[in-house]
């Protein structure tokens, strides 16, 4: 190894080892989970060979299918709404300079990031319980609304970041070329902004899929999502079926994160 000279002088002893250990610690639990989801034996104490039986069991479990589907469409609905609302908000806050109330708007948008989830959860439970009694409505709208609010800051961040890198003169140039404001937005700003919007949606989607505390407190009977269902199961004796469910969920998250990673890397 001839190339050790440059880094040798500024290397901090032990840091590389500690970092690599950390990566191992990060991935051992996940790897354990994935490996044992393919274990034919029902326990960790032995390995009986490769098997897909737990996946079969999980996919044939009506309850799992039901809560997984609910999670997906909830994340889709809340993610879409949050992205739409956050994109509009980002257009208002990034363009057109400073304005009165900007700090307050930012505080409001970022509030779900700062307030502990448990506090938001019980607060929503209290407020919605009143609404439930008054209106008699007990559907999924509460969950969609709660998830949307919770996802707004996550969708807002990438859109805003993207918008800040865009050259505002592009839209002005389009306006100079007699494009109407709407057409300038549709033909110039939106296509350039699109990767940010998609990235924002990915984040919002994953966050909604992940949200457990708020869901637990807002849902009514029969509105379990995958996370709340798992929360209930994990307090009991866990079957390897759970490994399979967790691995599948892991796969979905990884796909979304990879998509987010690729999207946010793409330059305009």
């Amino acid at each position: 190894m001839a190339d050790t000279g440059r880094s040798a002088v500024t290397r901090i002893p032990g840091f590389t080892a500690a970092a690599l250990l950390t990566f191992v610690l990060l991935y051992v639990p996940i790897a354990t989970l994935v490996v044992y989801s393919f274990n034919a034996a029902p326990s960790m104490s032995r390995w009986d060979g490769f098997s897909l039986q737990w996946y079969e069991a999980a996919l044939q479990n009506r309850q799992v299918r039901e809560v997984a589907l609910r999670s997906l469409w909830l994340a889709l609905a809340a993610g879409t709404m949050a992205t739409l609302v956050a994109t509009l908000a980002a257009l208002a806050t990034v363009r057109g300079g400073r304005f009165r109330g900007r700090t307050m708007i930012h505080a409001l948008i970022n509030q779900p990031l700062m307030v502990p989830e448990i506090v938001t959860g019980v607060a929503l439970m209290v407020v919605f319980s009143v609404v439930r009694v008054r209106t008699g409505y007990d559907g999924m709208a509460y969950l969609v609304l709660a998830h949307t609010a919770f996802c707004i800051p996550f969708a807002y961040l990438p859109v805003r970041a993207r918008l800040e890198t865009l050259d505002p003169t592009l839209a002005h140039a389009a306006a100079d070329l007699y494009a109407s404001r709407v057409r300038a937005f549709l033909h110039v700003t939106l296509p350039l902004l699109w990767p940010g919007v998609l990235a924002g949606f990915m984040l919002a989607f994953v966050i909604s899929l992940d949200a457990v505390v708020i869901t637990e407190f807002v849902k009514s009977a029969g509105q379990d999502t995958l996370p709340t269902w798992m929360l209930g199961q994990l307090r009991r004796v866990v079957t390897p079926e759970m490994n399979a469910v967790a691995t599948l969920l892991l796969g979905v998250s990884m796909l979304a994160v990879t998509a987010f990673f690729l999207l946010s890397r793409r330059r305009g």
């Binding site: 996370p227 798992m230 998250s253």
Partner: peptide, 9 residues
């Protein structure tokens, strides 16, 4: 970005 419950599990 992996589900909190998956990681806790």
């Amino acid at each position: 970005w992996t589900n909190l419950l998956v990681r806790t599990f």
